[in-house]
């Protein structure tokens, strides 16, 4: 699995938000996208999942171009948005079954995995709950469970730690390590590097829609504001 982004520029309508972004993500690699509010992290992600079209540049995952063959490209991705989006008329169980159908997963095997994840996130007794009953953090956990039951090659997660309790953050990090070990790649955006520093292989620091620094923590720490790096190790 290799994601190659080359000279990507884009934004919303006439407004250009990101400019000439290039990077690659190798199999089993976790890349952390960091930057302040408005630096272009979520815009880049919206391009990577095909919610926005590039103005220039290319996005290729495993030799499949996002623009040329969006169906085949998107099949390889699982995505957890910053704002959880759920179908208000489906309960948790039906959401999971819907994911199994869409990603054409083995039902018995995936339900077994789903039950394990639901237990980890303390949602196992809420299968008949509707989204309206879930708190913001619970909705976030539902989105995480649904992404992690898939066999996607690339997991794109936008600000996963906002709204999660500390136990859920640790559980999520353990799951990320598990999937990484199985060969999946990750692109995760975050405001604070400290939570991810022990898990990320590479950091990309965005400033005003452009890559201001990239590399390991050691390589970029002098080019990134100290508050973004944070102190605590997880």
């Amino acid at each position: 699995m290799t994601l190659t982004v080359k000279d990507l520029s884009g934004g919303y309508g006439q407004l250009t938000v990101i400019q000439n972004i290039s990077f690659t993500i190798q199999p089993g690699e976790l890349t952390a996208f960091i930057g302040l509010n408005g630096s272009g992290k979520s815009t880049t992600i919206n391009h990577l999942i095909g919610l926005l079209a590039p103005k220039t540049g290319s996005i290729v995952l495993n030799d499949v171009s996002m623009v040329m063959d969006p169906i085949a490209y998107k099949k390889q991705i699982a995505y957890v948005p910053e704002q959880p989006v759920l179908y208000e008329e489906l309960n948790l169980e039906e959401h999971i079954q819907f994911m199994i159908n869409i990603y054409q997963l083995d039902s018995a095997e995936t339900w077994e995995e789903a039950h394990r994840l639901l237990k980890i996130f303390r949602l196992d007794d809420k299968l008949n709950w509707f989204p309206t009953h879930f708190s913001k953090g619970m909705r976030q956990k539902v989105m995480i469970v649904m992404a992690f039951i898939t066999n996607a090659d690339l997991f794109i997660i936008d600000e996963p730690f906002l709204g999660l309790d500390v136990i859920a953050v640790n559980d999520l990090l353990a799951l990320i390590d598990e999937k990484k070990a199985a060969g999946a790649s990750f692109l995760i955006t975050t405001h604070v590097m400290s939570t991810l520093r022990a898990h990320a292989d590479k950091f990309i620091y965005l400033e005003d829609g452009q890559i201001a620094a990239s590399g390991s923590m050691e390589e970029i720490k002098d080019q990134v504001p100290a508050l973004l790096i944070g102190e605590a190790d997880v």
Partner: peptide, 17 residues
Amino acid sequence: VKSADAVFFLGDEAPLQ
């Protein structure tokens, strides 16, 4: 088309199209 479709149909966008 619903707001959540863009995320849920990543796995197979053909039915959505």
